[in-house]
Write a protein that binds this DNA or RNA. Structure first.
Length: 519
RNA sequence: GGCGCUUUCGUCUAGCGGCUAGGACACAUGCCUCUCACGCAUGGAACACGGGUUCGAUUCCCGUAGGCGCUACCA
C-alpha cells in the first residue's frame, strides 16, 4: 500500500457553481498529489439526474483554470481510466452491482418511495436495516419466482446493500485517527436507483475509485458518517487490500452565527463564496465571484490553504509551489474553520502590493472607463506611480517595498478620483478642512496663486525651485490648504507631484474654485 | 432523537506533560509625515466546565456542556 502510486481525485457534482469549500478540498488534493509526484483526477459525479444544472461542469473547469489548479486526467483532461463522467459509466456500475447481488451482499427491494414514507410515519426512527428488512418487499422476503415475475412485469426496484449487524467497522482516517462505528447503526443503503437507473454516490464512488486506482480519498467531513459504509463496500467487493486511505477535512463555517458556509451567506455579508461569478440558469440570479471582485487567484489559494492547515510555523504567505512542498495532511486541524473574509482581503492586499505597476494598469484602465473618465495608459501609470510614491521609499527588513493600503484594484477609484475629476463641493464639517481652511486661508491662497502663475516650468522641480524659497521667506505652510483646493480632502500624493500632473491651468482653476466656494 | 467528529485570544491558528501560552487578521495607542494611507513600535485579548492519571496538566483518559456533520431512490 505504501509504495502505491499516489492518485487522488476531486469529484464534484454539476449541481451548481463550485463552492469555495470545494475549492479548498481540490487544493488539498492537488497539494497532496504534487508533493508525492502523483496524479490528480477530475471526475464528474452526475448520478443525480434530477439535480443536473447545465453549465455547471464548464463553470467548474473554468474556475480551476483561473485558480491555476491543474488536473492530470479527467473530464476535459484526457487519461486512460475514462470515461470520467459517471453518467457515461452506467454499464460498468450495472456489472458491479450484479457482482454484489450474485455474492449475496446486496438484494433487490421493491418498496416504493410512498411505501417507505408510510413506514417512516408508522415506525419512529424507521431504518431499512437488519431489524426491519424482513418486514419489507424485497428479494429476501419474497420467493425467488415472485421476484423474477415482478422484474419481468417491469416493476421498479432498487438494489440495497445488505449490512451485517454488530460489526465494529474501523475507518482509519489520516487526520482523525481510527474512527469506530458499529454496523448496526447503518442502514441498508440504496446502491442502485430505480428512478434514473443510476447508482448512488456510495456505489459509484467505490467502483470508480477502485477502477481508477485512487490511493487516497481526501474529502469533506460531511462524508465521515458514510465512510464505514464505504469500508464495508470495499470488503464486499473483495478490494479491502487496495482500499484507499481516507482523510476527512474539517468544514468551512459561516463567519458569523452558526452552521456551515452556504451560498446564501456570501452576498448577504458582502463576500463571494464562489470563485467565479455565477448566473443561475433557472432564475437568473447572480452570485458574485472572487475573480470579478478583484481577487488574485494566488491570494485566494493562499488564504484557503490556511483555513484548516498551516505549515507549523509562522509563515503565512506562500506560493502554490511552496505549499506543495510544505503541505502535510497530519497537520490539518480537526475542527471547522469560520470563514474570515476580512483576512481574505488582507491576503489579496499582500499579493497586490507585490505585483509590478504594469500589472495594475489594465484593470485600472477598465475601472476608469466604468466611471466615465477619459484617460490614457500613460496618465494611469503616472497615477499608480504617484499613489505609492511616498511609501515606495520605505523598504522593510526583508527588502520588500510597500504600496498603499488597497486590497482590490477597485479600491483605487475613491483614492484617485481627484486626479481625473475636480472637486465640485467641499464638506465644511470635514475635520481636515475645518482644521486647515481658516479665515485667512483664502487670501493666502490668492497670494499663492500669484506665485504659481509666475512659474514657467510646472514640473515638480520647476515648482520646487520657486515655491520652496517663497515658503521659507513667508513662513507659510500652504500644503494642507492647497491640498483642499486640488483634492477636496485630506488625502492624495505629494502636492508638487499632483499639481505637476494636473498642469498649471487646472491647478489654478481648482484653486480659484476653492477660494470662491469656501471664501 | 440516534450516531460520529470537534472544543487555545472576537477570528485563523502554534503548542504534541514543566512555556511570562507564540504568530497572523481585526481593534487601540504612539512614531513617521505637507494629508490619507503604507510601514514600524507598543498594548488589550484565549487554554469551555467537572472529575481522574501524574511530582506536575492547555497537552493523556472519562464525563458534562457547546459547536459541526450525517441520519433520502442528494452528493
Amino acid at each position: 500500500m505504501s509504495d502505491r502510486k499516489v492518485r487522488v481525485r476531486f469529484a464534484p457534482s454539476p449541481t451548481g457553481p463550485l463552492h469555495i469549500g470545494g475549492v479548498r478540498t481540490a487544493l488539498y488534493n492537488y497539494l497532496f498529489a504534487k508533493q508525492h509526484g502523483g496524479d490528480l483526477i477530475f471526475r464528474i459525479e452526475d448520478t443525480d439526474s434530477s439535480r443536473f444544472v447545465p453549465g455547471a461542469e464548464e463553470y467548474i473547469i473554468e474556475s480551476f483554470h483561473w485558480l491555476g489548479i491543474k488536473f492530470d486526467e479527467g473530464v476535459g483532461f484526457g487519461g486512460n481510466y475514462g470515461p470520467y463522467r459517471q453518467s457515461e459509466r452506467r454499464d460498468i456500475y450495472k456489472e458491479y452491482v450484479q457482482q454484489l447481488l450474485d455474492k449475496g451482499k446486496a438484494y433487490i427491494a421493491f418498496d416504493t418511495p410512498e411505501e417507505l414514507e408510510a413506514k417512516r410515519k408508522e415506525i419512529d426512527n424507521f431504518q431499512y436495516d437488519a431489524s426491519t428488512r424482513q418486514l419489507m418487499k424485497n428479494s429476501l422476503t419474497l420467493p425467488a419466482e415472485v421476484v423474477q415475475e415482478m422484474i419481468a412485469e417491469g416493476q421498479q426496484y432498487v438494489v440495497r446493500f445488505l449490512i451485517e449487524p454488530g460489526i465494529d467497522v474501523v475507518v482509519d482516517d489520516m487526520i482523525r485517527g481510527e474512527v469506530h462505528i458499529n454496523s448496526s447503526i447503518l442502514d441498508d443503503k440504496v446502491l442502485f436507483k430505480s428512478a434514473d437507473q443510476l447508482p448512488t454516490y456510495h456505489l459509484a464512488n467505490i467502483v470508480d475509485d477502485h477502477l481508477m486506482e485512487v490511493s487516497h480519498v481526501i474529502r469533506g467531513e460531511e462524508w465521515l458518517p458514510s465512510a464505514p459504509l464505504h469500508v464495508l463496500l470495499y470488503d464486499a467487493f473483495g478490494w479491502a487490500d487496495t482500499m484507499p486511505r481516507f482523510a476527512h477535512l474539517p468544514l468551512l463555517l459561516k463567519p458569523i452565527g452558526n452552521g456551515k458556509l452556504s451560498k446564501r451567506d456570501g452576498d448577504k455579508l458582502g463576500f463571494p463564496v464562489f470563485p467565479l461569478e455565477w448566473h443561475d440558469p433557472k432564475n437568473g440570479e447572480i452570485s458574485s465571484g472572487y475573480r470579478e471582485k478583484g481577487y488574485l487567484p494566488e491570494a485566494v489559494l493562499n488564504f484557503l490553504a490556511l483555513l484548516g492547515w498551516n505549515p507549523g510555523n509562522d509563515q503565512e504567505l506562500m506560493s502554490l509551489d511552496e505549499m506543495v512542498e510544505l503541505f502535510d495532511l497530519s497537520k490539518c486541524s480537526k475542527n471547522g474553520a469560520k470563514f474570515d473574509y476580512v483576512k481574505a482581503a488582507w491576503f489579496n492586499h499582500q499579493y497586490l502590493i507585490r505585483q509590478p505597476d504594469e500589472a495594475w494598469t489594465p484593470s485600472f484602465d477598465k475601472l476608469l472607463k466604468e466611471q466615465g473618465v477619459e484617460s490614457t495608459p500613460q496618465k494611469e501609470a503616472e497615477v499608480v506611480r504617484m499613489m505609492k510614491l511616498k511609501v515606495i521609499e520605505y523598504v522593510d527588513g526583508q527588502g520588500n517595498k510597500h504600496k498603499r493600503n488597497i486590497s482590490f484594484v477597485s479600491d483605487l477609484w475613491p483614492l484617485t478620483k481627484f486626479f481625473f475629476v475636480a472637486p465640485e463641493s467641499f464638506d465644511r464639517e470635514d475635520k481636515f478642512i475645518k482644521k486647515n481652511w481658516k479665515e485667512e486661508t483664502a487670501s493666502e491662497m490668492r497670494q499663492f496663486i500669484q506665485v504659481l502663475s509666475s512659474i514657467e516650468d510646472f514640473s515638480v522641480e520647476g515648482q520646487k525651485a520657486v515655491i520652496d524659497p517663497w515658503v521659507e521667506q513667508n513662513g507659510l505652510r500652504p500644503w494642507n490648504a492647497w491640498r483642499i483646493c486640488l483634492v477636496g480632502a485630506g488625502q492624495g500624493p505629494d502636492m508638487y507631484e499632483l499639481s505637476a500632473f494636473l498642469g498649471k491651468e487646472e491647478t489654478l482653476r481648482r484653486m480659484q474654485f476653492a477660494i470662491d466656494t469656501l471664501g
